[in-house]
Amino acid sequence: MVRKLSTRRRHPLAGFVVLLFALVVAGGLYSAFRPAVADESGKSDAQLIAEGRQLYEVGCASCHGLNAEGIITKRGKNLGPPLIGVGAAAVDFQVSTGRMPMARPDTQAPEKPRTYDEGEVARLAAYIASLGPGPAIPDPEYYDVSEATDEEIARGGEFFRTNCTACHNFAGVGGALPEGRYAPSLHGVEPIHIYEAMLTGPQQMPVFSDEVLTPKQKRGVIAYIKTLEDQTAYGGLELGSRGPVGEGLWGWTFGIGALVLAAVWIANNGVRAERKKP
């Protein structure tokens, strides 16, 4: 063993192996000994709200106003809407998916890597929730779809097609809305965020309150979206799941392209083939 190692110590890859080993050890030691994450549960609500307010004043107030009352520009445009009464669910959705804070004023806030960690989101949510009553962050029982029955999924699909496909597309891959806005793809979105989006209606999206879609129906919709994500592509390549436009593109490029090439090949070969003389 030792002999084996010593003979290979000058192998060109030996340096990399040692480096890798050192990195793994250092990382392992760090994760074993790093200080535990601050425990949120010990803090009182008032404390969370106060900390949330501090975070808010730094990251959000420039658009939403110092007291979350919203800012109207001189031209009457809405720089940032009032946040009083939007509830913790709205904050959790917007900040956890990285939509807020926005990188710049735009027609729509795109999803992006999140700026605040979970604890900070909880503080912000607590602060906003303290300003006025609004939907709270849902408990897992509302969006946990791991045990959804086939029937629930089929019903959810029915609700999905009635309420969601008009903007998000039949496969949930998203679609365009007027003036450069869009309904984003639903693939890879956390169930809790889908639930919160239905509950709070972020950006262009309408609110699907519990009177319109009961929590059970919402869970069915989420379950259906999740099956769409995992579903086998029965027909082969899905070509973007954008309907006949993608199909036409492939028919014209791949199909007609291949057949025209075949026609050229057939016409240039056979009895009449004239090989170019060198």
């Binding site: 597309n169 365009a176 006949p244 436009v245 028919g251």
Partner: peptide, 10 residues
């Protein structure tokens, strides 16, 4: 019902 991406064949 209706879906985004409702187009006819090419």
């Amino acid at each position: 019902e209706v879906t985004a991406g409702s187009q006819p064949d090419w």
